[in-house]
């Protein structure tokens, strides 16, 4: 039996799962505060724009977006299978493509900042 190429998709999934476990809840609290009307300093236009204008910040943000979307996509793929959707190749293509498209969009917008 041939060794699988699953590590290609699983490596970023496991990395993203760990990353989102550490950072996502706190980041959601930040946007939740904004949603409740108590906009934190970071989300003031000037400060966030200045931050995102920095090259290293662009790389970090794009990295977080990619790993978050990829690990979510991978989980969604497995959940679809668990729920009885057997077209795994089609599901995998759609969810991974969506993760890459989302990452591509974030890179595109970050480069315009």
């Amino acid at each position: 039996m041939a060794r699988s190429n699953k590590p290609i998709v699983w490596g970023p999934f496991a990395t993203g799962g760990t990353l989102t476990a550490f950072v996502t809840p706190a980041l959601v609290v930040v946007t939740l505060l904004a949603a409740l009307g108590a906009v934190p300093d970071l989300l003031a236009y000037e400060r966030l724009h200045a931050l995102a204008a920095h090259g290293l910040a662009k790389v970090a943000i794009a990295g977080v977006v990619f790993l978050s979307l990829w690990s979510a996509a991978h989980r969604l793929r497995i959940t679809c299978y668990d729920l009885g959707i057997r077209a795994d190749t089609l599901v995998a293509t759609i969810v991974y493509a969506a993760a890459l498209a989302g990452t591509g969009a974030s890179v595109f917008y970050l480069l315009r900042i």
């Binding site: 979510a72 996509a73 991978h74 989302g102 969009a105 974030s106």
Partner: peptide
């Protein structure tokens, strides 16, 4: 596993 819908959705909102 369903947490992926919310984490993914929120990330797209950030994009």
């Amino acid at each position: 596993e369903f947490s992926c819908l919310f984490i993914g959705g929120w990330t797209l909102l950030m994009v």
